[in-house]
């Protein structure tokens, strides 16, 4: 039942802290999008990793997109589209 845990990163509110439980490109797919494995690797490369803590820092001015996230010592910005590939548990 590993697939069921966690909520999408995009559902967090401003300032909220959470722990990454799963990174899966599948959930952010769609026509013309990156394939799931590629998206997963890119998210891992920028520094997302299961078990790590993150915090929502800022939302973009229009449609609350993109999202700026504190990730360890760095700040990373993602579009909501890509943020859907990250599942978290608030903590």
């Amino acid at each position: 039942m590993d697939q069921m845990i966690g909520q999408k990163l995009g559902s967090l509110t401003l300032g909220q802290r959470a722990r990454v439980v799963r990174i899966s490109g599948e959930s952010a797919g769609g026509s013309g999008r990156l394939d799931a494995g590629e998206l997963e690797r890119r998210l891992l490369e920028i520094g997302f990793m299961e078990g790590d803590e993150l915090q929502i820092l800022h939302f973009g001015p229009i449609g609350r997109d993109p999202i700026a996230i504190r990730l360890g010592g760095m700040i990373v910005a993602l579009r909501r589209q890509e943020a859907d590939a990250i599942f978290v548990e608030p903590c």
Binding site: G32, R33, L34, L39, R42, L43, I46, P66, A68, M74, I75, V76, A77, L78, R79, Q81, E82
Partner: peptide, 10 residues
């Protein structure tokens, strides 16, 4: 392919 925006804010 639509390229994702994944960028570091230094």
């Amino acid at each position: 392919t639509v390229q994702p925006l994944i960028m570091e804010l230094p």
